[in-house]
Nucleic acid binder design. Structure first.
Lengths: 196, 196
DNA sequence: CTACATACCGACCAAGCGGTTTGTAAATGA
DNA sequence: TCATTTACAAACCGCTTGGTCGGTATGTAG
């Protein structure tokens, strides 16, 4: 049996996710969320104890599954190198300029909230470690095809860093071009992981 | 002849720079600055027309020269490749954990302010382009020693991205380790720019 | 029909924000 | 010496923020 109020809760989560994605957590105003949801403050505080808990719920119930689904093609398939490159190249073709400039919520929240709130920091750290493990173990699978001097964890973190940095860098220029350049260079780097 | 009030102005700038570095521009409170400077609101608004102009002044008079001085060793010297690697390696030894977790003000402000305020965005973009040019032209100088397939602008942006991403990534973990790993991998990448 | 929980409304609150205004002591130029 | 500007101090203002609280309509179980 599905509770009726679940619909309200979901709406709050989705709109909050959208606001936080666009403006960050701190700059997201509850009153804006209330207006967009067309509900009262009482409704929101019936479902969530405070703004921070709402933020955690958004992270766990919206961003986490979204993030895992997004990266899934990058860390599956027979050829991890090709999967990674395809994944990044598909970003170049599929993502709009606004998407890129808006950036990855995980990266944004990491920068904004890590120093302020431990709850956010640990959730973010956990996701980053998960992603790192996914990439690293996937590369290990085909280590025989790869160079001998590779530190898999280090390479995985390097790839994530480049992605983070690329989206940060393109925020200043407000266009896809910088992002494309960095991602292309990243793909060249990834190819070079193979035995020459 | 030096104006007496210049001392007050400098103090405001330096303390504001410190606050903005630690908490970002929006989260920096004027009242905190006033307390730390031990001055009144009247003093601050005598020297700066509003918070935004104070922010611009901090960027231009504190962050910009600091940034250029910081990167200078990376883009000078006889061997650009070695200079870059030395520069990054010296960060690993010289920077404290807090420094790393706090991150580069340019990167932080880029993420926080690019989407909010054009004045900040253009100043940041300008600095990034300057840095990119410095790195790229420095590499061009020794292009005969480097691989033939190098796109210098792209490589320069890639290096900056990795640096940005590394400091972002380490914010979540609150220690130097992740930063070190990414920087080490970046140095390996930089060495690989040379002809093999 | 009664009793109680759920789901929500909307007025209200204290605190903090950036910014304005009024006032004044000190420095400066004529 | 006197008028004027400089360099502040401090009270004040409107506004927004997250958060609380009393009330209420709608179920729902006994």
């Amino acid at each position: 049996m599905v509770k009726v109020s679940e619909h309200t809760r979901q709406k709050i989560l989705e709109i909050s996710a959208d606001e936080i994605r666009k403006h960050g957590f701190t700059a997201t105003s509850l009153s804006v969320i209330l207006k967009r949801c067309d509900i009262s403050k009482g409704a929101l505080y019936h479902h969530f104890t405070n703004k921070l808990e709402l933020g955690y719920a958004v992270f766990e119930e919206i961003y986490t599954p979204e993030f895992l689904a997004m990266w899934q093609p990058a860390v599956s398939g027979n050829d991890p190198i090709e999967s990674l490159v395809d994944f990044f190249q598909s970003m170049l073709t599929n993502l709009s300029c606004e998407d890129i400039v808006c950036g990855c919520p995980l990266n944004n929240l990491c920068q904004e909230m890590s120093g302020i709130d431990e709850g956010f920091r640990l959730r973010i750290l956990n996701m980053q470690q998960q992603l790192n493990s996914l990439i690293a173990t996937n590369l290990v699978r085909v280590s025989s095809q790869l160079r001998d001097d590779i530190n898999f964890q280090q390479v995985a973190y390097f790839i994530i860093s480049c992605f983070y940095g690329a989206s940060n860098l393109s925020k200043g220029s407000k266009n896809k071009d910088l992002f494309s350049q960095v991602i292309n260079e990243l793909c060249a780097y990834i190819y070079h992981l193979r035995k020459q």
